[in-house]
Computed example of a mutant assay.
Amino acid sequence: MNERERIVNRDLSLLDEAHYGGRIARAEYRARRRNVLSVLRDSHGITARNVLAPPVRAADGPPGDEMLPVLLGAGRSSRTWLMVFAAGALVCAVLLGLLFFAA
Rank of each mutant, 00 (worst) to 15 (best):
H44E: 14
R33A: 05
F85C: 06
R30W: 04
A74N: 10
D42I: 07
V36D: 01
P63A: 13
A103N: 12
D11K: 14
A25Y: 08
I7D: 07
E3F: 08
E28D: 10
H19N: 07
F100Y: 11
L98R: 09
V91W: 13
V51N: 10
P62A: 06
L95V: 15
P69H: 04
A102F: 14
A74R: 11
V84K: 01
S77G: 15
R23F: 05
L82H: 09
D16R: 12
F85L: 15
F85Q: 00
N2Y: 03
L52N: 04
N2I: 00
N2V: 00
A103F: 15
C92L: 15
G97A: 13
E28A: 06
G21L: 04
D16Q: 11
A86W: 11
G61V: 00
L15M: 11
D60A: 09
V39Q: 07
R76W: 05
A103I: 14
L68N: 01
L90F: 15
I7R: 09
R4A: 07
L14V: 09
E5D: 09
A59W: 05
A102S: 15
A103K: 14
P69V: 04
G45P: 07
D11M: 11
E17T: 11
R57H: 04
R30H: 06
A59E: 10
L90Y: 07
G97V: 09
